[in-house]
Each structure stands twice: as structure tokens, then as C-alpha cells.
Design a protein around this nucleic acid. Structure first.
Lengths: 196, 196
DNA sequence: ACATTCGCATAACAAGCGTTATGAATATGT
DNA sequence: ACATATTCATAACGCTTGTTATGCGAATGT
């Protein structure tokens, strides 16, 4: 039976919540219309109304991932090296939410790599992340907290390091608990700064 | 109709080849009995003879991945920092084969993260890789080519950096062509060695 | 107040999936 | 030479998938 109140916006949020729960529980490969509908307590009829085809559901899931990643709480930091460190710490799976988010992220790579259009999208997304990081690094260089050099090159390196640490921490959380991750990141940052 | 010659070993190799081609073309999520059979010019009946259930096919695919990764050609290097560099270069997607292999590897993470048993397996696999890298780094330290410090910690950092670079290069090969990857890796290694 | 649109459940559909049973042709052991 | 065991094709099974058609009650506009 149709809902008595047509609160469209709220219903849209409910759908997104259900999609997120399915992703967290079964990964990107387990994202099916029926799984989302069951999580929502509804039927596939509802979903086809919001998403004409499966690819639209997948696109929405990717948007959701990007949106929640962008909207995650950031730790405050003064400009300079501290801001670079904060930005990288914000990426790492240090909290339960961040773990869930990163797991979904990694699990989406299978789908993304199989579709050139999605691959391009991801390439652009990561490029934007590197661009933001480049700005932070350039600012730190201006403050003399990082040695001179192409900031884009440093950003690419820092992003690689962090991304790889995410993957390792997800597969082996026992070996890479939050303190260890922070330790390794600080090692990396220390290696960038010249010894006193 | 059954083959006239029962060359079991050769047939097993043919099956593995077909599995590999399917993985390279459609990723781990596209690994189906019918896809492998079609690639082989056979039917599912053949496959169920070699793999009683789907999980056995998946397990074989993972073994194949590990085996081909272990058997990949390694560049020769003298012990020390050069050996560390060579080991990390061997991981990067610098050749067509390495790109295919790494794409399959990354696409398998979705399946692996969804299954705790597979996750553990991967954790052990990466731990072994770090252990080998730790030995190489310790040797470089003994030669005075790397500063002292916990070699395992350095290995974890180096593996993170390389793994992340692999992912970025796969999604954005235009931004990370082989020379750029080598450049970034050398930047990283240079940051580990104290300035002259 | 009435007509229309919207929101969604219900139900069926074809296609693809892994699995299983059957049988025929070949190889193998005695 | 004959009996047995391999090796596969063929074909069907039940299940899940995405998609589509139908219909009904609630919301909305006039």
C-alpha cells in the first residue's frame, strides 16, 4: 500500500540509507535491487520508481560514496604541515565509520575497473583529491615546513602512501590498528622533512 | 564429444588459461562458469568435472593469481638498496602483463573483503610480502645504504606506498605512465636515505 | 468535487546463474 | 578382449537477477 504521507525527500533519504547498509554488509558486488528493497522493508517496485535501471542504482551508490566521503567530519588543523597530516589522517580507516566507508570504497573498484566510464570518473575523483592535497602541500612549503620541490609530485606520493595504507589496514586490522597507522603516516611525513 | 587424447595436464593448463583470460577481460566479478567454458570452447560440463563447485573455481583463480605473481620475471639486482628498489619495481604495473595481473588483483579485493576466510588469506599473503621486503631492507641497512631503524616498519611503509601507487596507476594510466611511476618510487626511496 | 497524476505493491517475465543427472565416446586395467 | 573408469557434451533443474506490466489508493490541481 502507498504511504499515507508523500514526503518525497524523507523517502529518498530512507532509500539512500538502505543502499548504504547493503553496501556495508555485502560490498559492492552484493548490491541488488531486492537486497536494498528488503533492507528498506519495501519491494523492487519502489526502487524501479526511483531508479529506472540498475546502472542508475549503481551511479547513485557511487554518488552516495563520494558525498559521504566529502561530508565526513574533518579534524581541524592550522595551515601548513599540520593541515597535510590532518587531511591524510581523515582518509585512514581509524574509526568504525571510516572502516565501513573505506571497505565500500575498495569493494567498488572491481565494478569501476570493469567499466571504462566509471574508471574515468574515478581517475577524475582521485585527481581532484590530489589537487586539494597539492594546495595544502604548497602552503606548507611556503611556511618552510616542507622542503621545496614540485608540490604535485609530493601530493601524488602522499596519496599513494595513504591509499596503500588504507588497503593494508582493511585486510589486516590486527597488524594495522589505528595507532600503527598513525605511526606509519608520521614516519612518512618525517621522511619528507629534512633532518634538523 | 570427449577429446581423443586424454592429455590431462595440458587440458588443465588450457582451463587455467581460459580462467585467466576471463579475469583479465571482466574482472573477478565476471568470473562465471559459462564465461570460462565459452573462452575454452567447451561447456560447463567440463568445468564441473575439474571444479565440483563454484568456490573451487574461485579458489583456483586465487591460486592462479598468487602463482603467476610469484612466477613473474624479476629484475636482477645486487643486494642493498638496489634490491629493494628492484623488488618494488617488480610490483608496479609497468608492463602490459603487470597491468593485467594487477587489475585482476585489485578486482579480487571485493570478493576477498566479503569473505573473512579470504581476508585472512590475503592478510597472510601481504604479511609474507612484507617479511621478504623486511629482509631486503635489513640487508641494505647493514650495507649502510639505508639509515638504521626498525626494518619491518620501513617495509610496511614501502609496501603501502607501492600498493597505493599501483591502484592510482590502474585507474589513471595517463597520469601515471611507467616513467612517472618509477620517478615517484625513486622520490620515495630518496626520501628514506639521508641527504648527503 | 472530480479528474489526473503520483507512489508503490503485486506479480509475472526472460535471462543468467550454479548445480545435477544422464549418456556416449574414449582410455585404462586385467 | 572385455569390463571398468575417465572425460566430456547435453540438457534440464531451481534459484536469483533486472526488468516490465498492471492496478489501486493517496495526493494534487482545478
Amino acid at each position: 500500500m502507498p504511504r499515507t504521507k508523500g514526503d518525497h525527500e524523507a523517502r529518498r533519504r530512507d532509500v539512500s540509507e538502505a543502499v548504504w547498509r547493503v553496501l556495508a554488509a555485502h560490498g559492492f558486488g552484493g548490491l541488488t535491487l531486492r537486497a536494498v528493497a528488503a533492507e528498506l522493508g519495501a519491494t523492487t517496485g519502489l526502487l524501479t520508481h526511483y531508479f529506472p535501471a540498475k546502472r542508475d542504482l549503481v551511479a547513485h551508490a557511487l554518488d552516495l560514496l563520494a558525498e559521504r566521503t566529502a561530508a565526513r567530519p574533518r579534524r581541524p588543523a592550522t595551515p601548513g604541515l599540520a593541515a597535510v597530516r590532518a587531511a591524510l589522517l581523515d582518509i585512514l580507516p581509524l574509526t568504525a565509520d571510516a572502516i565501513a566507508s573505506n571497505r565500500i570504497w575498495v569493494s567498488s573498484w572491481d565494478t569501476a575497473l570493469a567499466d571504462p566510464a566509471l574508471s574515468d570518473d574515478y581517475a577524475r575523483k582521485y585527481a581532484r583529491g590530489r589537487a586539494r592535497l597539492t594546495d595544502l602541500i604548497a602552503a606548507a612549503q611556503d611556511l618552510g615546513e616542507l622542503p621545496p620541490g614540485d608540490p604535485a609530485r609530493l601530493a601524488a606520493g602522499a596519496q599513494s602512501f595513504t591509499l596503500g595504507l588504507v588497503v593494508q589496514a582493511l585486510f589486516d586490522p590486527a597488524t594495522f590498528p589505528p595507532p600503527r597507522q598513525v605511526e606509519l603516516l608520521d614516519d612518512y611525513l618525517a621522511s619528507l622533512t629534512p633532518p634538523p
